[in-house]
């Protein structure tokens, strides 16, 4: 029943491809080298946080340009609990996820309460993230601008509970997290709340007229999105073992997070995943290509990235997934669902 719901609207070909792809990803660490594993872990990470960002913008229509705030708070919070109290990341999450959800809801509440909307709200999110970045530069107990380093304990094998171990461990953990986020978003978009978000995104005034409690619904979107992002931050801290305010809280990180969903297809559940699968290899591929060509000018890779963004937004403004999914026959095109079901019943 549950899996049926999860795959509603997906064609048999789509289901097959998804299963085959997932199977390949599960077996891959047996054959792949560590470089490929690290790239895929990065792809899963961006798919995951992109999914989280998509909850707020794609589902509920609230543009955030400051999601690095939750990555940073989640990462720093869990790292501090680990280093000072010896609490593992999963226990740490029980603390930092609610905290980040509350921080997000507080920012949202302040903004929505005072009628800060659209571009202004986006600027408010940037300002909060940047404010926190500069503040963390000066918190000496957490390393300040010099960075916070998690101790690396080697030679004890994989420890899932403490999230210490080999690249394969991080690969599987991040894969599972990305899958969970995918399933969660798939489920939540079919709940009453999901439909409220849809109404809010498409027409806030009409939604309010229908009696949807806009403020509460918006805050739930921000809270869920921020909490999910915080989990991404915790993983980041334990995977890289270092945290610098200028990296985790930077506006560049907020932008990296939202590029995937926008390129893949904003408001779609699989879009963030596809976006991460396109962008991360694109960046890495560009680096490899430039290296092979012997071009060492700083900035070349970013210029290519920028060009790709401009091209994608000009020619596929709704993202690649909605177009690709119908073209390749992976999902039932919107509007044909009822027909198919009738046909099967006959």
């Amino acid at each position: 029943m549950l899996t049926q719901d999860l795959f509603e609207g997906v064609t048999p070909r789509g289901k097959m491809l998804f299963t085959a792809g997932l199977g390949a990803l599960l077996l891959l660490p047996e054959v792949a080298d560590s470089y490929l594993i690290s790239i895929l872990t990065l792809i899963f990470w961006f798919a995951y946080v992109g999914q989280a960002w998509n909850v707020m913008m794609g589902f509920a229509g609230q543009l955030s340009l400051g999601h690095a705030l939750y990555v940073g708070l989640g990462g720093y919070g869990a790292a501090a609990l680990y280093m000072h109290l010896g609490l593992g990341p999963w226990v740490g999450m029980l603390v930092v996820v609610p905290v980040c959800a509350l921080v997000g809801m507080a920012i949202g509440w302040l903004g929505f309460r005072f009628g800060v909307r659209g571009v202004h709200f986006a600027l408010l999110t940037i300002a909060c993230a940047e404010f926190t970045r500069v503040a963390f530069d000066h918190i000496t107990a957490l390393g300040g601008s010099g960075g916070l380093f998690l101790p690396v304990v080697g030679g004890r094998g994989d420890d899932l509970l403490m999230l210490r171990g080999s690249p394969q461990l991080y690969y599987y953990v991040m894969l599972v997290l990305a899958l969970l986020a995918l399933a969660l978003c798939r489920i939540v978009t079919r709940t009453r709340l999901g439909y409220f978000w849809l109404a809010l995104r498409e027409n806030p005034d009409a939604a309010a007229a229908l009696g949807i409690p806009l403020l509460r619904v918006k805050l739930l979107a921000v809270g869920l999105s921020a909490g999910m992002t915080a989990v991404g931050g915790v993983f980041y801290a334990f995977y890289y073992n270092n945290l610098f305010p200028d990296q985790v809280f930077a506006m560049g990180r907020s932008i990296e997070i939202l590029l995937g969903p926008i390129v893949g297809g904003i408001g779609t559940v699989f879009g963030p995943v596809l976006g991460a699968m396109i962008l991360t290899p694109l960046g890495e591929g560009a680096s490899l290509l430039l290296e092979a060509l012997g071009i060492t000018l700083p900035g070349t890779k970013q210029v290519i990235y920028g060009l790709m963004l401009v091209l994608i937004i000009c020619f596929r403004p709704a993202g690649i997934w909605p177009w690709l999914a119908v073209k390749a026959g992976l999902v039932v095109p919107p509007g044909e669902t009822d027909l198919r079901e009738k046909g099967e019943a006959e």
């Binding site: 543009l63 340009l65 986006a122 926008i262 700083p298 970013q302 963004l309 401009v310 937004i313 403004p317």
Partner: peptide, 25 residues
């Protein structure tokens, strides 16, 4: 809004990194 934002962001990346390529950091 978000499409305009991405377009201008792409242009910004091209501009600033183009300058970086020509003049260095």
């Amino acid at each position: 809004d978000h499409q305009q934002f991405i377009l201008l962001l792409g242009i910004a990346m091209i501009l600033v990194n183009g300058l970086m390529m020509v003049f260095g950091p």
